[in-house]
Amino acid sequence: MPRWIAHLVVVAVFAGLIAVAFARVNYAWNWAGVWEYRQKFVQGWLTTVAISLAALVVSTLIGSLAALCLASRRPLVEAIGRVYVELIRGTPLLVQLLLGFYVVASAVGLENRYVVGVLVLSLFSGAYMAEIFRGGLAAIPRTQRDSARAIGLTPWQTLRLVILPQALRLVLPPVAGQLVSLIKDSSLLSVIAISEFTLNAQEVNAFTYSTLESYLPLAAGYLVLTLPLSALARWLESRVRFEA
């Protein structure tokens, strides 16, 4: 059986089960009430896309810096990277957002909640990126550096012409996967009242009392973003494997 048919079959069975479940609880749908607020969904979805893209760029920068710290031979620099990564990965994003917004941002007088939201989300995602990048750099064998030195490349040329092009291929699939997590994690920004996709769905629910009609489009809206990214990650992964 071709793979795409298998996927269709599984999706159909799953949808059938959900439909049966809804039929049994006799859920009274109220799509008309929610449709009134369709503009909010679109607005929220676009905000989520924008925030995720901004956080992707910033967390790539933070992750690269932190990965360099982790790879450093200086104990103090390595410690900075390690403490950052472990603290962030070991605590809930929710706590980081509340601390970041109500304590740190207030203390330094940063008032734009969107900027704070993107920064906290980037710090969070950056810790995962750092480990991805560190792993990518560590996966390049020592012999490659030896060969680069032997032909007379400078350390900077070695990084630019030999190490990074190879490491980039290795880290692209996990980075695409990390972006999937990032998009879903951005839903937590609703707790600091950022008007992204999830907060808008919550508001529509509050206006219409139609919980499922508000949250099912929310799930669909995230899937539209994350499914292609997952596919991209898998495709990148297969490409890396063929070239090895």
Partner: peptide, 13 residues
């Protein structure tokens, strides 16, 4: 000068 190692001399990318 030029140096050739036992293996993995070339850049695979």
């Amino acid at each position: 000068v030029g140096t050739v190692f036992q293996a993995y001399n070339l850049f695979p990318h």
